[in-house]
Design a protein around this nucleic acid. Structure first.
Length: 151
DNA sequence: GCCAACGTTGGC
DNA sequence: GCCAACGTTGGC
């Protein structure tokens, strides 16, 4: 059982978009970074929990908690020429990109990036490091518990 | 809109 | 296999 942080641009999928879905579940597709892909494909297990983080927006920060509800499978968008995530080098026989599905556990108050930075206990979080761009990062159990305590 | 940081690409 | 050029991310 692991913990994660997964970034989403609210203009793409916001926490409210997720909450509004009938099954409150979303396919985490469109990831086109090998490290993030490997986390999903190789490490994520059913029941792993993740903070849902809004990025590239006015109020970046954690806004909810999700749970992995489906293990990684080939990302359908890579085969769709009309998708902005289309990858001409991927084939169904040899897919490059994978996605899990996550289900909303609950929305949380906004724990802003600024607030996260204010806690010395979280100083080593990947997302707080300079130049961090990875859209999916592991979270320490201790960090997870610490943040939960602040919600 | 800017720009630092980083990942990927492709020529050699 | 190196590495310069390029594209993207994401906070500000």
């Amino acid at each position: 059982m692991r913990y994660w942080l997964m970034k989403s641009e609210p203009s793409e999928v916001s926490i409210d978009d997720l909450a509004a879905k009938p099954d409150q579940t979303v396919a985490w597709d469109g990831v086109r970074n090998y490290q993030a892909r490997n986390f999903m494909r190789n490490q994520m297990q059913l029941g792993d929990q993740a903070f849902f983080y809004h990025s590239s927006c006015e109020q970046p920060g954690i806004v909810g908690i999700t749970i992995v509800s489906k293990l990684a499978y080939p990302d359908a968008t890579q085969f769709n020429p009309k998708s902005k995530y289309y990858d001409p080098k991927a084939t169904p026989d040899n897919p490059r990109w994978f996605n899990v599905e996550v289900k909303l556990v609950r929305k949380t108050r906004l724990i802003s990036l600024k607030e996260l930075r204010s806690y010395p206990a979280l100083a080593n979080m990947r997302i707080l490091q300079k130049g961090n761009r990875l859209s999916i990062t592991p979270i320490d159990p201790a960090e997870w518990a610490f943040i939960l305590g602040k919600i």
